[in-house]
Design a protein around this nucleic acid. Structure first.
Lengths: 129, 129
DNA sequence: TATGAACCCTCTAGCAACTACAGGGTCAAG
DNA sequence: CTTGACCCTGTAGTTGCTAGAGGGTTCATA
């Protein structure tokens, strides 16, 4: 399987796949005579795993750990569980932050009924500590 | 006012202030004989505005626009209003995305009751398209 | 057989928004 | 007169890609 096909199959850009290889997160593929990368089904599986983890918001470092853990079938599952749990907490924090921010911005938007900058409550509010 | 004091007053790192100056978003300060930056109250006001906007999630480009708009007191306020409105929509999108992602991750977490990677539902789910 | 589109290769640089040195100079207190 | 807390410039690192430049390859079609 050539890189373009793998890219389509995993909804990833070709450049991103090469980037993952450079980063050591996706193992290098075999090469054809013309020096084209030739991917195996196991590459497809691994890249799928990577993309899915990334789409769920795991960082590259976290994906690296997840891959390492998932490589050994007899490894206890607790660490993966803990990572997912940590990540969930982080997402909750982000949602809370954004929600607070949303409230503040909505408040700002509700406050301006002037039509000139000089009297604009939004501009005013931005400038105060 | 020297850079360290301005940094503390606005809860900004010294390096970040210099960065803003390089980026042309904060006007350069006067210099003392020893070539130290010497900031005026108007710098304090401007930096406060910048930080507050950034903390509300506006991008640097957006802050640049807001600053330009707010410089002219007679400028109509509608553009600032529109920018804030757009930004609010973007935040709503982000919250929605994170909420969906949270649900998926929570589902994943609920699914694993094995203790070995080989049978871990989390690892399994990550690897499927 | 030639040619053109659609692939593939490497290498380098760019994005946002900072952050972190390295390798200096300055200033005030004890 | 030295110590520590400041300040300076300049460069490079961070995260996770993305976008070229400047080439080579493959394959279908004329």
């Amino acid at each position: 399987m050539r890189i373009g096909k793998l890219a389509k199959a995993t909804n990833t850009k070709v450049e991103t796949i090469r980037f993952y290889e450079r980063e050591g997160i996706l193992p290098p593929a075999d090469r054809t005579d013309a020096n084209y990368r030739d991917y195996s089904p196991s590459h497809l599986a691994k890249l799928t795993f990577i993309r899915r983890s990334r789409n769920l918001g795991f960082s590259m470092a976290q994906v690296r750990s997840l891959l390492k853990l998932s490589d050994n079938d007899n490894h206890p599952c607790a660490q993966v569980d803990a990572m997912a749990r940590d990540h969930l907490e982080e997402i909750d924090r982000k949602i809370a932050d954004l929600t607070a921010l949303r409230a503040e911005l909505a408040h700002l938007l509700g406050s301006c009924n002037s039509d000139r900058i000089g009297e604009c409550r939004i501009v005013e509010a931005l400038g105060s500590a």
